[in-house]
Amino acid sequence: MTYVIIQDELVHRQDATISFDDRGYYFGDGIYEVIPVYNGRPFALNEHFQRFLESAQKIDMPLAAPVDKIKSLACSLIEQNNLDNGYVYIQMTRGVAERNHLYERDLTSFLTGFTKEMTFPRDKHNGISLYATEDIRWLRCDIKTLNLLGNIMAKRKAADHNCEEALQHRGDVVTEGSSSNIFMVKNKNIYTHPANNFILNGITRQVVISLAGDLKYNVIEEAFSLDDIEQADEVFITSTSAEVTPVSKIQGTIESSYLVGPVAKTLQEAFYRTTNL
């Protein structure tokens, strides 16, 4: 029997209902987190829920329950569903109300969650392909909202060109993937876009930056151009599902090929050790 979270309790999935008038359905008015689970244990749980709290604050949305309660529900769901490896998805919308662009501040936020088994892609040592395309999203990409239309259009375009992920850019400036953060290596220095409103500050991104520092790599958080990444020594992406995945080719706006280099390999191995998987 599979359980899900509905507000402050676990219920059988087939018994779960969501209102037609939920603002998440009408407007994408909500936030979410995807927390990886390794060997039955949630990874970077506190960091994920700190971002969850910050996202709620940025869109003026009250929590459906205290953060510690939501954490406890997530952990209980993992245990109840006997999840070994995969992820737990937590979503919160502004709540139920008659369709109106103007939201009221007295609504009760609506919390849901589910788990999914997943095999993490640790066979991608030869690298993946990215499709470079213009970043058409709004200007608050730092908020992990349900409004992902720009991201999914970029992902679809990448897949239509036989690429596993997109590389988004605003003009000449590389931002991030459709569901990942992008890193490049030049002269043993690691570059990634700063964590401002143009990108989502990925939790895996944060872990990898910390690991890179422990390994004495110089990490430079500054914007870089398409020309820069075209001339990079290595490129890799990070995300909950991709972990640390090297890039072997970019096509689209630019065309470039890369070898899977020592920096990506070293960070892969370091990340794997943190998960104990």
Rank of each mutant, 00 (worst) to 15 (best):
G150S: 04
N151I: 12
N151P: 15
N151F: 13
N151W: 09
I152S: 12
I152P: 09
M153G: 11
M153R: 15
M153P: 11
A154R: 09
A154K: 04
A154V: 12
A154N: 09
K155R: 11
R156K: 15
R156P: 06
R156M: 15
R156F: 11
K157I: 15
K157S: 14
K157C: 12
K157A: 15
K157G: 04
A158N: 02
A158G: 01
A158E: 01
A159N: 07
A159E: 09
A159T: 05
A159P: 02
A159Y: 07
A159V: 06
A159G: 02
D160K: 11
H161N: 07
H161W: 05
H161V: 03
H161G: 03
H161T: 02
N162Q: 10
N162S: 05
N162I: 02
N162D: 06
N162T: 03
C163R: 01
C163A: 00
C163V: 00
C163F: 01
C163S: 03
E164A: 04
E164C: 00
E164Y: 00
E165D: 03
E165A: 02
E165L: 00
E165C: 04
A166E: 04
A166V: 10
A166F: 08
L167R: 00
L167G: 04
Q168S: 11
Q168P: 05
H169A: 14
H169W: 08
H169Y: 14
R170C: 13
R170Y: 09
R170Q: 13
R170N: 08
R170E: 08
R170P: 05
G171Q: 13
G171S: 10
G171L: 10
G171W: 07
D172F: 08
D172N: 15
D172G: 15
D172T: 13
D172V: 14
V173D: 07
V173Y: 03
V173N: 06
V173T: 15
V173W: 03
V174I: 14
V174G: 04
V174A: 07
T175Q: 03
T175V: 10
T175Y: 04
E176P: 03
G177N: 01
G177Y: 01
S178D: 01
S178W: 02
S178F: 05
S179W: 07
S179T: 11
S179Q: 10
S179E: 08
S180L: 11
S180Q: 03
S180I: 10
S180H: 02
N181L: 11
I182E: 00
I182W: 00
I182P: 00
F183G: 04
F183P: 12
F183C: 07
F183Q: 02
M184I: 10
M184D: 05
M184Y: 09
M184G: 03
V185F: 10
K186Y: 08
K186E: 12
K186Q: 15
K186H: 15
K186F: 08
N187C: 07
N187Y: 08
N187K: 12
N187A: 13
